[in-house]
């Protein structure tokens, strides 16, 4: 495993830890989109089904279990925890996320590496992950107060796929890996969606001001 891949995974893990920290310590999920979190549950559930069929490494298995358990528990907290669920910005989080699922699934049926259940589900998870942040970005834009933990959560979540892009370049150049257009293009789209957010995040960080996105 190269350094970009490891950094990407750690950033991904860090983003989830930041979100859990917010939920546990502040007992709040204000500014967090349940729609995006539900999409992540679907992304991880469809991508990591192979933990039951294929073994890669201890690291791989543990990380997959961590992502599955944490994504399910975040949704549980937001929906059912008696304090946390009252802080959910239900009225602002109106993105119709179901509308993302069907096109991604149809695209996965049409464009995939191999027409098998495992490959189609894997491909679907890549397409869906690329756009899963959209409800969260819309909610952030509507939020007047973005607290630090929420801002950092989205930043780390965006940085993770950006680091994967470097990992793929490295693997292609140094390890002579095959051309893998499906994850590459999905990852590029995913990272590009954060461009605007990154710009304002870094700007506010430099000026030491509170993060606010223009409406």
């Amino acid at each position: 495993m190269n350094v970009f891949r490891l950094a990407g995974d750690m950033t991904h893990l860090l983003s989830i830890m930041v979100l859990l920290l917010k939920i546990h310590s502040m007992k709040s999920c204000a500014g967090i989109s349940l729609k995006t979190q539900e999409l992540y549950v679907l992304v991880f559930a469809t991508r990591y089904l192979d933990i039951f069929t294929t073994y890669f490494s201890f690291y791989n298995t543990v990380m997959k279990i961590v992502f599955l358990v944490t994504s399910f528990s975040i949704v549980w907290y937001m929906r059912h925890h008696k304090v946390v669920r009252q802080t959910y910005d239900r009225d602002q989080d109106t993105f119709r996320h179901h509308l993302l699922v069907i096109p991604c699934f149809l695209l996965a049926l049409l464009i995939n590496h191999r027409f098998t259940v495992r490959e189609v589900l894997w491909t679907f998870s890549l397409y869906l992950e690329a756009v899963a942040i959209l409800p969260q970005l819309v909610l952030l834009q509507r939020s007047r107060n973005i607290d630090n933990l929420t801002g950092n959560y989205v930043f780390f979540l965006g940085a993770y796929r950006g680091l994967y892009l470097f990992n793929w370049i490295y693997r292609y150049m140094a390890e002579k890996s095959q051309l893998r257009w499906i994850p590459w293009i999905s990852g590029l789209v995913q990272t590009a969606l954060y461009a605007d957010f990154f710009y304002y995040y870094i700007k506010s960080w430099k000026k030491r001001e509170k993060l606010q996105l223009p409406a």
Binding site: D50, F56, K64, H113, Q178
Partner: peptide, 10 residues
């Protein structure tokens, strides 16, 4: 198996 190359990623 070639398919497994990309499935080792998260």
């Amino acid at each position: 198996e070639e398919d497994n190359e990309e499935h080792d990623e998260l």
